[in-house]
Design a protein around this nucleic acid. Sequence first.
RNA 1: GUGGGCGUAGCUCAGUCGGUUAGAGCGCCAGGUUGUGGCCCUGGAGGUCGCGGGUUCGAAUCCCGUCGCUCACCCCA
Length: 439
Amino acid sequence: MKSSSLPGFRDFYPEEFRLRQHILSGWREVARRYGFIEYDGPPLEPLELYTAKSGDEIVEQLYSFTDKGGRAVALRPEMTPTLARMVGGRAQSLPKPIKWFSVPQLFRYERPQRGRLREHFQLNMDIVGETDVAAEAELVAAAVDVLRHFGLDETDFVARVSDRRLVSLLLREAGVEDDRLREAISALDRSERQGDDWLVDRLTALGLGERAIERVLGIRERSLAELAREYGGSDEISDAIGRLQDFFRLMDAQGLADYVAFDLRLVRGLAYYTGLVFELWERSGRLRAICGGGRYDGLLAALGGPDLPALGFGLGDVVLGELLKEKGLVPEASERVDDFVIFVTAEQRPAAIRLARQLRERGRSAAFDYRGRTVGRQFRAADQVGASRAIVIGPEEERDGTVSLRDMETGAEGHVPLTDLLTEAAPPDAHPEPPPQEA
RNA sequence: GUGGGCGUAGCUCAGUCGGUUAGAGCGCCAGGUUGUGGCCCUGGAGGUCGCGGGUUCGAAUCCCGUCGCUCACCCCA
Protein backbone atom coordinates (compact mmCIF):
# COMPACT_ATOMS: atom_id res chain seq x y z
CA MET A 1 0.00 0.00 0.00
CA LYS A 2 1.66 3.13 -1.25
CA SER A 3 -0.65 5.64 0.33
CA SER A 4 -4.12 5.91 1.67
CA SER A 5 -6.60 8.50 2.79
CA LEU A 6 -6.36 9.81 6.32
CA PRO A 7 -7.92 7.57 8.96
CA GLY A 8 -11.62 8.14 9.16
CA PHE A 9 -11.74 9.84 5.76
CA ARG A 10 -13.12 8.23 2.66
CA ASP A 11 -12.14 7.98 -0.98
CA PHE A 12 -15.30 7.80 -3.00
CA TYR A 13 -14.61 5.49 -5.91
CA PRO A 14 -17.41 5.50 -8.49
CA GLU A 15 -19.19 2.69 -6.69
CA GLU A 16 -19.14 4.51 -3.35
CA PHE A 17 -19.87 7.83 -4.96
CA ARG A 18 -23.00 6.38 -6.52
CA LEU A 19 -24.28 5.42 -3.07
CA ARG A 20 -23.34 8.82 -1.69
CA GLN A 21 -25.24 10.60 -4.44
CA HIS A 22 -28.18 8.27 -4.05
CA ILE A 23 -28.36 9.18 -0.38
CA LEU A 24 -27.77 12.92 -0.71
CA SER A 25 -30.19 13.38 -3.57
CA GLY A 26 -32.82 11.39 -1.68
CA TRP A 27 -32.36 13.70 1.31
CA ARG A 28 -32.83 16.77 -0.81
CA GLU A 29 -35.88 15.39 -2.49
CA VAL A 30 -37.66 14.61 0.77
CA ALA A 31 -36.61 17.88 2.41
CA ARG A 32 -37.94 19.88 -0.49
CA ARG A 33 -41.14 17.84 -0.44
CA TYR A 34 -41.69 19.13 3.08
CA GLY A 35 -41.10 22.70 2.03
CA PHE A 36 -37.65 23.07 3.53
CA ILE A 37 -35.15 25.35 1.83
CA GLU A 38 -31.49 24.45 1.43
CA TYR A 39 -28.71 26.58 2.83
CA ASP A 40 -25.02 26.07 3.61
CA GLY A 41 -22.23 27.73 5.53
CA PRO A 42 -18.44 27.48 5.61
CA PRO A 43 -16.86 24.13 6.48
CA LEU A 44 -14.22 25.99 8.46
CA GLU A 45 -15.35 28.19 11.33
CA PRO A 46 -13.82 30.17 14.18
CA LEU A 47 -12.99 27.80 17.01
CA GLU A 48 -14.92 29.91 19.48
CA LEU A 49 -18.14 29.25 17.62
CA TYR A 50 -18.03 25.79 19.18
CA THR A 51 -16.13 26.27 22.42
CA ALA A 52 -18.62 28.89 23.55
CA LYS A 53 -21.78 26.87 23.96
CA SER A 54 -21.49 23.45 22.40
CA GLY A 55 -21.51 20.32 24.47
CA ASP A 56 -18.24 19.34 26.17
CA GLU A 57 -18.02 16.13 24.17
CA ILE A 58 -18.15 18.05 20.93
CA VAL A 59 -15.42 20.46 21.95
CA GLU A 60 -13.11 17.63 23.03
CA GLN A 61 -13.35 16.07 19.61
CA LEU A 62 -12.98 19.17 17.49
CA TYR A 63 -10.82 19.05 14.42
CA SER A 64 -9.08 22.31 15.19
CA PHE A 65 -5.84 24.09 14.39
CA THR A 66 -4.32 27.52 14.00
CA ASP A 67 -4.39 28.95 10.50
CA LYS A 68 -1.59 30.93 8.91
CA GLY A 69 -3.14 34.14 10.10
CA GLY A 70 -2.93 32.97 13.68
CA ARG A 71 -6.67 32.38 13.97
CA ALA A 72 -7.94 29.45 16.02
CA VAL A 73 -10.23 27.58 13.63
CA ALA A 74 -12.13 24.32 13.51
CA LEU A 75 -13.71 22.14 10.87
CA ARG A 76 -17.40 22.23 11.63
CA PRO A 77 -18.50 19.32 13.84
CA GLU A 78 -22.15 20.28 13.72
CA MET A 79 -24.35 22.68 11.84
CA THR A 80 -26.43 24.26 14.58
CA PRO A 81 -24.07 27.11 15.56
CA THR A 82 -23.74 28.08 11.92
CA LEU A 83 -27.50 27.92 11.56
CA ALA A 84 -27.90 30.10 14.64
CA ARG A 85 -25.60 32.72 13.18
CA MET A 86 -27.19 32.68 9.76
CA VAL A 87 -30.74 32.76 11.06
CA GLY A 88 -29.68 35.48 13.47
CA GLY A 89 -28.49 37.62 10.64
CA ARG A 90 -31.92 37.68 9.07
CA ALA A 91 -34.24 36.70 11.88
CA GLN A 92 -36.13 39.97 11.69
CA SER A 93 -37.05 39.66 8.05
CA LEU A 94 -37.60 35.94 7.56
CA PRO A 95 -41.20 34.71 7.64
CA LYS A 96 -41.83 32.22 10.42
CA PRO A 97 -41.57 29.38 10.77
CA ILE A 98 -38.17 29.19 9.13
CA LYS A 99 -37.81 25.73 7.61
CA TRP A 100 -34.26 25.23 6.46
CA PHE A 101 -32.22 22.18 5.62
CA SER A 102 -28.57 21.58 4.84
CA VAL A 103 -26.33 18.70 3.82
CA PRO A 104 -22.98 19.65 5.35
CA GLN A 105 -19.89 17.50 5.54
CA LEU A 106 -19.03 17.46 9.24
CA PHE A 107 -15.77 16.60 10.97
CA ARG A 108 -14.86 15.22 14.35
CA TYR A 109 -11.51 14.06 15.60
CA GLU A 110 -12.22 10.79 17.30
CA ARG A 111 -11.45 7.15 16.97
CA PRO A 112 -13.01 5.79 13.78
CA GLN A 113 -15.37 2.90 14.19
CA ARG A 114 -18.08 1.14 12.28
CA GLY A 115 -20.70 3.69 11.34
CA ARG A 116 -18.65 6.51 12.75
CA LEU A 117 -15.81 8.17 10.90
CA ARG A 118 -13.99 11.46 11.23
CA GLU A 119 -15.99 12.90 8.41
CA HIS A 120 -19.52 12.38 7.27
CA PHE A 121 -22.38 14.00 5.45
CA GLN A 122 -25.39 14.83 7.52
CA LEU A 123 -28.87 15.92 6.61
CA ASN A 124 -29.91 18.71 8.96
CA MET A 125 -33.52 19.82 9.01
CA ASP A 126 -34.52 22.59 11.37
CA ILE A 127 -37.66 24.56 12.12
CA VAL A 128 -37.11 27.93 13.78
CA GLY A 129 -39.73 30.20 15.29
CA GLU A 130 -42.48 27.74 16.05
CA THR A 131 -43.63 26.40 19.41
CA ASP A 132 -46.64 24.39 18.29
CA VAL A 133 -46.30 20.63 18.62
CA ALA A 134 -47.30 20.29 14.98
CA ALA A 135 -43.74 21.32 14.20
CA GLU A 136 -42.48 18.27 16.10
CA ALA A 137 -44.90 16.06 14.24
CA GLU A 138 -43.76 17.51 10.93
CA LEU A 139 -40.10 17.07 11.75
CA VAL A 140 -40.38 13.46 12.91
CA ALA A 141 -42.55 12.65 9.92
CA ALA A 142 -39.89 14.11 7.65
CA ALA A 143 -37.18 11.98 9.28
CA VAL A 144 -39.36 8.89 8.92
CA ASP A 145 -40.09 9.70 5.30
CA VAL A 146 -36.42 10.08 4.55
CA LEU A 147 -35.88 6.45 5.48
CA ARG A 148 -39.07 5.37 3.75
CA HIS A 149 -37.83 7.12 0.63
CA PHE A 150 -34.94 4.66 0.51
CA GLY A 151 -37.22 1.66 0.79
CA LEU A 152 -37.14 1.09 4.54
CA ASP A 153 -40.40 0.58 6.40
CA GLU A 154 -41.79 0.07 9.90
CA THR A 155 -40.35 -3.43 10.03
CA ASP A 156 -36.88 -1.97 9.53
CA PHE A 157 -36.84 0.98 11.91
CA VAL A 158 -38.74 2.88 14.55
CA ALA A 159 -38.66 6.41 15.90
CA ARG A 160 -38.28 6.35 19.66
CA VAL A 161 -39.80 9.43 21.16
CA SER A 162 -39.26 10.93 24.57
CA ASP A 163 -39.42 14.33 26.21
CA ARG A 164 -36.62 15.96 28.14
CA ARG A 165 -38.94 18.18 30.13
CA LEU A 166 -41.23 15.30 31.08
CA VAL A 167 -38.31 13.14 32.17
CA SER A 168 -36.98 15.95 34.33
CA LEU A 169 -40.35 16.56 35.92
CA LEU A 170 -40.89 12.89 36.64
CA LEU A 171 -37.44 12.52 38.18
CA ARG A 172 -38.03 15.53 40.36
CA GLU A 173 -41.37 14.07 41.34
CA ALA A 174 -39.60 10.83 42.25
CA GLY A 175 -37.38 12.72 44.64
CA VAL A 176 -34.29 13.62 42.63
CA GLU A 177 -32.81 16.90 43.79
CA ASP A 178 -32.52 19.64 41.18
CA ASP A 179 -28.73 19.69 41.25
CA ARG A 180 -28.65 15.95 40.63
CA LEU A 181 -31.06 16.07 37.73
CA ARG A 182 -28.48 16.07 35.00
CA GLU A 183 -26.64 13.10 36.43
CA ALA A 184 -29.87 11.20 36.91
CA ILE A 185 -30.89 11.86 33.32
CA SER A 186 -27.52 10.71 32.11
CA ALA A 187 -27.84 7.55 34.22
CA LEU A 188 -31.25 6.88 32.74
CA ASP A 189 -29.84 7.31 29.26
CA ARG A 190 -27.09 4.80 29.87
CA SER A 191 -29.17 2.29 31.81
CA GLU A 192 -30.25 0.69 28.56
CA ARG A 193 -26.70 -0.46 27.88
CA GLN A 194 -25.54 -0.85 31.47
CA GLY A 195 -28.49 -2.73 32.91
CA ASP A 196 -30.85 -2.20 35.83
CA ASP A 197 -28.40 -3.14 38.56
CA TRP A 198 -26.02 -0.50 37.30
CA LEU A 199 -28.81 2.07 37.30
CA VAL A 200 -29.80 1.23 40.86
CA ASP A 201 -26.18 1.69 41.96
CA ARG A 202 -25.95 5.02 40.20
CA LEU A 203 -29.20 6.31 41.64
CA THR A 204 -28.17 5.17 45.10
CA ALA A 205 -24.94 7.08 44.66
CA LEU A 206 -27.02 10.12 43.79
CA GLY A 207 -28.67 9.88 47.16
CA LEU A 208 -31.98 8.35 46.16
CA GLY A 209 -33.84 6.14 48.58
CA GLU A 210 -35.22 2.73 47.76
CA ARG A 211 -38.70 4.06 47.18
CA ALA A 212 -37.52 6.81 44.85
CA ILE A 213 -35.42 4.34 42.88
CA GLU A 214 -38.46 2.11 42.51
CA ARG A 215 -40.34 5.02 41.03
CA VAL A 216 -37.58 5.93 38.62
CA LEU A 217 -37.34 2.35 37.39
CA GLY A 218 -41.09 2.34 36.94
CA ILE A 219 -41.10 5.51 34.90
CA ARG A 220 -39.32 3.79 32.07
CA GLU A 221 -42.00 1.16 31.67
CA ARG A 222 -45.06 3.38 31.75
CA SER A 223 -47.16 4.07 28.73
CA LEU A 224 -48.26 7.60 28.11
CA ALA A 225 -51.82 6.77 29.18
CA GLU A 226 -50.62 5.22 32.44
CA LEU A 227 -48.53 8.26 33.18
CA ALA A 228 -51.48 10.50 32.47
CA ARG A 229 -53.54 8.61 35.05
CA GLU A 230 -50.81 8.54 37.67
CA TYR A 231 -49.68 12.14 37.38
CA GLY A 232 -52.91 13.82 36.41
CA GLY A 233 -52.64 16.13 39.37
CA SER A 234 -49.51 18.03 38.51
CA ASP A 235 -50.08 20.90 36.13
CA GLU A 236 -46.64 20.87 34.62
CA ILE A 237 -46.49 17.12 34.20
CA SER A 238 -49.95 16.78 32.75
CA ASP A 239 -49.14 19.62 30.41
CA ALA A 240 -46.05 17.82 29.13
CA ILE A 241 -47.99 14.58 28.84
CA GLY A 242 -50.79 16.32 26.98
CA ARG A 243 -48.33 17.76 24.53
CA LEU A 244 -46.87 14.32 23.84
CA GLN A 245 -50.35 12.91 23.41
CA ASP A 246 -51.05 15.62 20.86
CA PHE A 247 -47.85 14.67 19.10
CA PHE A 248 -48.81 11.03 18.82
CA ARG A 249 -52.29 11.97 17.63
CA LEU A 250 -50.73 13.99 14.82
CA MET A 251 -48.46 11.11 13.87
CA ASP A 252 -51.46 8.84 13.82
CA ALA A 253 -53.30 11.31 11.61
CA GLN A 254 -50.46 10.99 9.09
CA GLY A 255 -50.70 7.22 9.14
CA LEU A 256 -47.30 6.95 10.82
CA ALA A 257 -48.40 5.46 14.14
CA ASP A 258 -46.45 2.27 13.46
CA TYR A 259 -43.26 4.28 13.05
CA VAL A 260 -43.23 5.96 16.46
CA ALA A 261 -42.86 4.55 19.93
CA PHE A 262 -43.02 6.36 23.26
CA ASP A 263 -39.91 5.49 25.20
CA LEU A 264 -38.77 7.49 28.21
CA ARG A 265 -35.43 5.67 28.40
CA LEU A 266 -34.33 7.81 25.50
CA VAL A 267 -32.69 11.04 26.59
CA ARG A 268 -30.04 11.96 23.99
CA GLY A 269 -26.57 12.97 24.99
CA LEU A 270 -26.61 16.61 24.08
CA ALA A 271 -27.52 18.83 26.97
CA TYR A 272 -29.36 21.53 25.11
CA TYR A 273 -32.60 19.71 24.36
CA THR A 274 -35.60 21.21 26.13
CA GLY A 275 -38.60 19.24 24.98
CA LEU A 276 -39.40 16.35 22.69
CA VAL A 277 -36.40 14.28 21.64
CA PHE A 278 -36.35 11.38 19.22
CA GLU A 279 -34.05 8.91 17.55
CA LEU A 280 -34.51 6.60 14.61
CA TRP A 281 -33.28 3.09 15.34
CA GLU A 282 -32.98 0.02 13.25
CA ARG A 283 -35.39 -2.53 14.72
CA SER A 284 -32.75 -5.18 15.20
CA GLY A 285 -30.74 -2.73 17.25
CA ARG A 286 -27.48 -3.95 15.82
CA LEU A 287 -26.50 -0.55 14.50
CA ARG A 288 -26.37 2.70 16.36
CA ALA A 289 -29.06 5.32 16.08
CA ILE A 290 -29.61 6.33 12.48
CA CYS A 291 -30.88 9.80 13.27
CA GLY A 292 -31.52 11.99 16.27
CA GLY A 293 -33.01 15.32 17.15
CA GLY A 294 -35.47 17.27 19.18
CA ARG A 295 -36.58 20.64 20.42
CA TYR A 296 -33.89 23.03 21.59
CA ASP A 297 -35.65 26.24 22.58
CA GLY A 298 -33.14 28.68 23.95
CA LEU A 299 -30.10 27.31 22.16
CA LEU A 300 -30.11 29.88 19.39
CA ALA A 301 -30.06 32.68 21.93
CA ALA A 302 -27.33 30.92 23.89
CA LEU A 303 -25.26 30.76 20.73
CA GLY A 304 -25.64 34.47 20.26
CA GLY A 305 -28.49 34.15 17.81
CA PRO A 306 -32.07 35.35 18.10
CA ASP A 307 -34.22 34.14 20.98
CA LEU A 308 -36.43 31.92 18.89
CA PRO A 309 -37.78 28.46 19.65
CA ALA A 310 -36.30 25.78 17.43
CA LEU A 311 -36.16 22.10 16.74
CA GLY A 312 -34.26 19.94 14.33
CA PHE A 313 -32.53 16.68 13.60
CA GLY A 314 -29.38 15.33 12.07
CA LEU A 315 -29.15 12.19 9.95
CA GLY A 316 -25.77 10.89 8.81
CA ASP A 317 -24.84 9.10 5.62
CA VAL A 318 -22.57 6.46 7.14
CA VAL A 319 -24.98 4.37 9.17
CA LEU A 320 -27.72 4.88 6.61
CA GLY A 321 -25.40 3.71 3.85
CA GLU A 322 -24.48 0.57 5.76
CA LEU A 323 -28.11 -0.13 6.43
CA LEU A 324 -29.03 0.24 2.76
CA LYS A 325 -26.20 -2.05 1.77
CA GLU A 326 -27.33 -4.68 4.27
CA LYS A 327 -30.92 -4.52 3.09
CA GLY A 328 -29.97 -4.65 -0.58
CA LEU A 329 -31.42 -1.22 -1.22
CA VAL A 330 -28.46 0.23 -3.10
CA PRO A 331 -29.33 0.92 -6.74
CA GLU A 332 -27.37 -0.82 -9.46
CA ALA A 333 -24.76 0.98 -11.49
CA SER A 334 -26.34 3.41 -13.86
CA GLU A 335 -23.31 4.97 -15.49
CA ARG A 336 -23.71 3.51 -18.91
CA VAL A 337 -22.93 4.86 -22.33
CA ASP A 338 -25.80 5.12 -24.77
CA ASP A 339 -23.88 4.79 -28.00
CA PHE A 340 -20.44 3.45 -28.85
CA VAL A 341 -19.24 4.49 -32.28
CA ILE A 342 -16.97 2.02 -34.03
CA PHE A 343 -14.91 2.83 -37.08
CA VAL A 344 -13.60 0.08 -39.31
CA THR A 345 -10.54 1.75 -40.78
CA ALA A 346 -8.62 4.85 -39.90
CA GLU A 347 -10.37 6.56 -42.82
CA GLN A 348 -13.63 6.58 -40.89
CA ARG A 349 -12.25 7.98 -37.67
CA PRO A 350 -13.17 11.60 -38.44
CA ALA A 351 -16.68 10.50 -39.40
CA ALA A 352 -16.97 8.52 -36.19
CA ILE A 353 -15.84 11.42 -34.06
CA ARG A 354 -18.24 13.73 -35.87
CA LEU A 355 -21.10 11.30 -35.27
CA ALA A 356 -20.25 11.00 -31.57
CA ARG A 357 -20.35 14.76 -31.34
CA GLN A 358 -23.71 14.99 -33.08
CA LEU A 359 -25.16 12.38 -30.76
CA ARG A 360 -23.82 14.24 -27.74
CA GLU A 361 -25.37 17.46 -28.98
CA ARG A 362 -28.68 15.64 -29.00
CA GLY A 363 -28.25 14.66 -25.38
CA ARG A 364 -27.06 11.08 -25.79
CA SER A 365 -23.88 9.84 -24.21
CA ALA A 366 -21.47 8.60 -26.81
CA ALA A 367 -17.96 7.17 -26.73
CA PHE A 368 -15.50 5.64 -29.15
CA ASP A 369 -12.13 3.96 -29.19
CA TYR A 370 -9.31 6.47 -29.44
CA ARG A 371 -6.78 4.27 -31.14
CA GLY A 372 -8.86 2.45 -33.70
CA ARG A 373 -8.14 -1.10 -32.73
CA THR A 374 -9.70 -4.00 -34.57
CA VAL A 375 -13.46 -3.97 -34.84
CA GLY A 376 -13.62 -6.90 -32.44
CA ARG A 377 -11.66 -4.99 -29.80
CA GLN A 378 -13.82 -1.96 -30.29
CA PHE A 379 -16.89 -4.08 -29.68
CA ARG A 380 -15.28 -5.40 -26.55
CA ALA A 381 -14.67 -1.83 -25.42
CA ALA A 382 -18.31 -1.01 -26.15
CA ASP A 383 -19.28 -3.95 -23.99
CA GLN A 384 -17.03 -2.86 -21.15
CA VAL A 385 -18.59 0.59 -20.88
CA GLY A 386 -22.03 -0.93 -20.97
CA ALA A 387 -23.05 0.67 -24.25
CA SER A 388 -26.62 -0.07 -25.20
CA ARG A 389 -25.96 0.45 -28.90
CA ALA A 390 -22.93 0.06 -31.14
CA ILE A 391 -22.84 2.14 -34.29
CA VAL A 392 -20.42 0.90 -36.94
CA ILE A 393 -19.08 3.11 -39.68
CA GLY A 394 -17.05 1.40 -42.39
CA PRO A 395 -16.14 2.34 -45.93
CA GLU A 396 -19.54 1.25 -47.27
CA GLU A 397 -21.53 3.10 -44.66
CA GLU A 398 -19.50 6.22 -45.14
CA ARG A 399 -20.07 6.05 -48.89
CA ASP A 400 -23.81 5.35 -48.57
CA GLY A 401 -24.52 7.80 -45.81
CA THR A 402 -25.70 5.04 -43.47
CA VAL A 403 -24.52 3.38 -40.29
CA SER A 404 -24.74 -0.15 -39.02
CA LEU A 405 -26.70 -0.08 -35.79
CA ARG A 406 -26.37 -2.96 -33.35
CA ASP A 407 -28.37 -3.47 -30.19
CA MET A 408 -25.78 -4.64 -27.70
CA GLU A 409 -28.39 -6.40 -25.61
CA THR A 410 -30.14 -8.47 -28.25
CA GLY A 411 -27.49 -8.48 -30.92
CA ALA A 412 -30.01 -7.31 -33.52
CA GLU A 413 -28.32 -5.29 -36.21
CA GLY A 414 -29.29 -3.38 -39.34
CA HIS A 415 -28.42 -0.46 -41.56
CA VAL A 416 -30.12 2.88 -41.08
CA PRO A 417 -29.58 6.21 -42.83
CA LEU A 418 -27.40 8.53 -40.81
CA THR A 419 -30.03 11.28 -41.01
CA ASP A 420 -32.66 9.00 -39.49
CA LEU A 421 -30.35 8.10 -36.64
CA LEU A 422 -29.78 11.73 -35.82
CA THR A 423 -33.41 12.72 -36.19
CA GLU A 424 -34.50 9.99 -33.80
CA ALA A 425 -31.78 10.94 -31.36
CA ALA A 426 -32.95 14.55 -31.15
CA PRO A 427 -34.89 15.15 -27.94
CA PRO A 428 -38.20 17.05 -28.36
CA ASP A 429 -36.96 20.01 -26.38
CA ALA A 430 -33.55 20.01 -27.97
CA HIS A 431 -31.76 23.28 -27.78
CA PRO A 432 -28.24 24.34 -28.64
CA GLU A 433 -25.59 24.67 -25.99
CA PRO A 434 -26.12 27.82 -23.95
CA PRO A 435 -23.57 30.50 -24.71
CA PRO A 436 -20.75 30.61 -22.20
CA GLN A 437 -21.36 33.16 -19.49
CA GLU A 438 -18.95 35.99 -19.13
CA ALA A 439 -17.38 36.15 -15.71
C1' G B 1 -8.62 6.94 25.73
C1' U B 2 -8.77 1.08 27.31
C1' G B 3 -8.68 -4.09 25.79
C1' G B 4 -9.09 -8.34 21.82
C1' G B 5 -8.46 -9.89 16.52
C1' C B 6 -6.25 -8.97 11.78
C1' G B 7 -2.51 -6.70 7.94
C1' U B 8 0.74 -11.42 1.40
C1' A B 9 -0.77 -8.39 -6.14
C1' G B 10 -6.49 -3.66 -7.65
C1' C B 11 -10.03 -7.67 -5.15
C1' U B 12 -10.70 -12.69 -2.60
C1' C B 13 -7.15 -15.62 -0.65
C1' A B 14 -2.96 -19.89 -0.58
C1' G B 15 1.95 -20.10 1.27
C1' U B 16 3.48 -27.22 5.09
C1' C B 17 8.52 -27.96 10.92
C1' G B 18 11.67 -20.51 9.25
C1' G B 19 15.12 -22.70 3.48
C1' U B 20 16.63 -21.01 -2.74
C1' U B 21 13.45 -16.77 -8.51
C1' A B 22 6.37 -15.46 -3.09
C1' G B 23 1.66 -18.28 -5.91
C1' A B 24 -3.78 -19.01 -7.61
C1' G B 25 -8.59 -17.22 -9.13
C1' C B 26 -10.99 -12.78 -10.57
C1' G B 27 -9.85 -8.01 -12.61
C1' C B 28 -6.51 -5.11 -15.86
C1' C B 29 -3.33 -4.75 -20.49
C1' A B 30 -1.78 -7.04 -25.18
C1' G B 31 -2.35 -10.77 -28.88
C1' G B 32 -5.44 -15.01 -31.33
C1' U B 33 -4.20 -11.07 -39.32
C1' U B 34 -8.19 -9.65 -43.33
C1' G B 35 -15.47 -5.39 -40.57
C1' U B 36 -18.75 -7.60 -34.83
C1' G B 37 -18.78 -7.85 -27.93
C1' G B 38 -20.41 -11.25 -23.85
C1' C B 39 -17.26 -17.69 -24.19
C1' C B 40 -12.43 -19.66 -25.02
C1' C B 41 -6.87 -19.80 -25.74
C1' U B 42 -1.89 -17.48 -25.21
C1' G B 43 1.21 -13.86 -23.18
C1' G B 44 2.13 -9.59 -19.96
C1' A B 45 2.14 -5.85 -16.23
C1' G B 46 1.43 -5.57 -11.03
C1' G B 47 3.89 -7.29 -4.45
C1' U B 48 10.53 -3.77 -0.55
C1' C B 49 4.70 -10.08 2.13
C1' G B 50 1.76 -2.62 6.30
C1' C B 51 6.33 -0.16 8.24
C1' G B 52 10.85 -0.28 11.52
C1' G B 53 14.05 -3.01 14.46
C1' G B 54 15.68 -7.86 16.49
C1' U B 55 16.80 -13.40 16.57
C1' U B 56 19.06 -16.62 12.69
C1' C B 57 23.74 -18.98 7.98
C1' G B 58 18.70 -17.80 6.14
C1' A B 59 12.30 -14.50 8.05
C1' A B 60 6.01 -13.64 4.57
C1' U B 61 6.78 -17.40 8.52
C1' C B 62 9.64 -16.38 15.30
C1' C B 63 10.14 -11.83 18.92
C1' C B 64 9.51 -6.44 20.01
C1' G B 65 7.84 -1.75 18.53
C1' U B 66 4.92 1.19 15.35
C1' C B 67 1.05 2.47 11.86
C1' G B 68 -3.52 1.02 9.75
C1' C B 69 -8.11 -1.80 9.72
C1' U B 70 -11.66 -4.14 12.79
C1' C B 71 -14.69 -5.71 17.23
C1' A B 72 -16.01 -4.48 22.26
C1' C B 73 -15.85 -0.49 26.00
C1' C B 74 -16.07 4.88 26.51
C1' C B 75 -18.72 8.44 23.94
C1' C B 76 -21.52 10.38 20.32
C1' A B 77 -23.25 13.34 14.60
